[in-house]
Design a protein around this nucleic acid. Structure first.
Length: 289
DNA sequence: AACTACTCCTGGAGGC
DNA sequence: TGCCTCCAGGAGTAGT
């Protein structure tokens, strides 16, 4: 479910509530979700104190003491909620099912972290695709290396020349699957791919080689601006990807049948590369302009 | 090497 | 209401 902005928003919220807390006990109710490196088990989380939360692409990284590191990937439907000892929510993010505020644990709550102040962090995932890894901290870099992630789109690593070079190397690949390829840039998913392509006035089927200098600049700007808006405005956290009439986001994704916010032509939905894809048929064809 | 199809799952929405 | 079909924001793997 969550893409870069959702994971980053969750990270920022948890960074305010978790560091300094010690995990007294962790439970895994669905064993396949937990992967321990070097023989580590879920029980090895007991006694570990949270130091810092970081993010790489869609991976949430939890630095623990004693040189342990936990990594969480929410995939399509993962949700994380931190509640205090009285049940008040301190931080939450990810997939909107079960609804925020619903009683926890839910039947799809597969991992629980009990904290030293009586609070609890719940990992709920109705589709069971999410994963939690526990590893010695030295294993983190090789782990991320193996994931073959492209640059962080909001970092200085993603410059216009870098983007143009990458586009040139993937000439025949259509733009949408390219953006979804985590080795191209890290963290973009289906919603933000549609939003970025719309903002850049390109088509999902535009091939990388057809993206000229001006279009590449629009694409670069769109990647930065769309993701920045989602993170800084908290758009992701509020909407969880569901189009809302009352808010101008997402601008095309999930809005089939509604007027394009730029030109008024009806937004269409179709399958592209196996993924639901939303575009404005009028103002998104200009690959070379 | 580059790209496609298939796979892991369950819940919610919409049609009848 | 109930039953059915389809769809879902990810990514690893096997196959071409």
């Amino acid at each position: 479910m969550p893409e870069l902005p959702e994971v980053e928003t969750l990270r920022r919220d948890l960074q305010k509530t978790l560091p300094g807390r010690t995990i007294t006990r962790a439970e895994v109710r669905l064993p396949k979700l937990f992967i321990g490196h070097n023989g580590l088990s879920i029980d090895d989380l007991a006694g570990r104190r949270v130091q810092e939360l970081r993010r790489r692409a869609k991976y949430l990284i939890v630095d623990l003491d004693a040189d342990h590191t936990m990594v969480i990937h929410l995939r399509l439907a993962g949700q994380v909620v931190h509640r205090d000892s009285t049940g008040n929510t301190l931080a939450e993010g990810g997939h909107p099912v079960p609804a925020y505020g619903a009683p926890l644990p839910h039947k799809s709550t597969h991992v629980l972290f009990h904290l030293d102040d009586g609070g609890t962090v719940y990992l709920t995932d109705i589709r069971q695709f999410g994963r939690v890894w526990l590893m010695p901290s030295d294993d983190l870099d090789p782990f991320l290396e193996a994931a073959n992630l492209g640059p962080e789109p909001l970092s200085d690593a993603l410059t216009l020349p870098f983007l143009r070079d990458r586009l040139a190397r993937r000439g025949r690949m259509p733009l949408k699957p390219l953006l979804l390829d985590q080795s191209f840039v890290g963290g973009v998913g289906n919603i933000y791919a549609d939003e970025i392509i719309f903002a850049a006035k390109l088509g999902p089927d535009t091939r990388a080689a057809e993206i000229g200098a001006r279009a590449a600049r629009r694409l670069h700007d769109a990647i930065k601006s769309v993701l920045t808006l989602a993170v800084t405005e908290g758009v992701a956290e509020i909407l969880n990807g569901k189009a809302a009439e009352w808010r101008d986001f997402p601008r095309v994704h999930g809005r089939a049948g509604q007027p394009c916010p730029r030109c008024g032509v009806t937004i269409v939905k179709f399958k592209f590369g196996g993924r639901g894809t939303y575009t404005c048929p009028k103002c998104q064809p200009a690959a070379r302009a």
